[in-house]
Simulated scan of single mutants.
Amino acid sequence: MVTVVVVENIFLLVIVTLFSVLQNAFFATKVEREGKVQNTQTSAFKRVSCANRNCMDSYPTFLAVMWCAGLCLNQAPAAFAGLIYLVARQKYFVGYMGQTSQSTPGYMFGKRVLSFLFVMCIVGILNFLLMRYIGNDYKETVEMITNAASTLLLIP
């Protein structure tokens, strides 16, 4: 019974994490395919390789803030923001394969989503501290606000 409650509280985060793993595999496949098709010194290979490396550099930060936001505050808006981040990362990767300037919108969008997740983490931690040391629990109010605010991430 305890296992069901734990899984219930994290299953959306797990699903988004698995989607992100599939996306990483897709990116790696693109790099491998580009390396086999052409000489590894071509500009197309360098762009795909650089886009993959940039995505992998931000991946631990994404996972950390998404899981922290989901566990400390609410998994639904954190998972939704995680999915939006994956879309932004895909846009960044595909844009980088063209001209590097085409990747800027995806980068900026992803940065905004990471900022939202970071704020969710801070709010969740502050709410825990308020509840623990002062006795005031604002979790329901904050959850309502973050549920509504997460839809604002869709605005470009």
Rank of each mutant, 00 (worst) to 15 (best):
F116N: 09
N52Q: 05
S58R: 01
S58T: 07
L152H: 11
T104W: 13
L86M: 12
L130A: 10
L22Y: 05
A79Y: 07
L13Y: 12
T29H: 14
E34Q: 05
A44K: 05
R33Q: 04
F80V: 07
A64T: 15
V2F: 14
P105R: 10
L63S: 04
K111S: 14
L83Y: 00
T29V: 15
G35F: 05
V31C: 06
R47T: 11
T146K: 11
K30P: 04
I134F: 15
V94H: 13
V123W: 06
L126M: 15
P105M: 05
V87Y: 06
T42S: 10
I155P: 02
L73W: 03
Q41C: 04
G110M: 02
N54Q: 06
P77Y: 13
G82T: 01
A88D: 11
G82F: 04
S49Q: 03
Y59Q: 12
R89N: 04
G106T: 03
A51R: 00
I125N: 05
Y96C: 01
T141Q: 14
P105D: 11
V123M: 08
Y96T: 06
A25I: 15
L114Y: 07
N39D: 13
L86A: 08
M120H: 02
A81D: 11
F11D: 15
C55Y: 04
L152S: 12
S20E: 00
Q38M: 12
N136W: 15
V6N: 08
M66S: 10
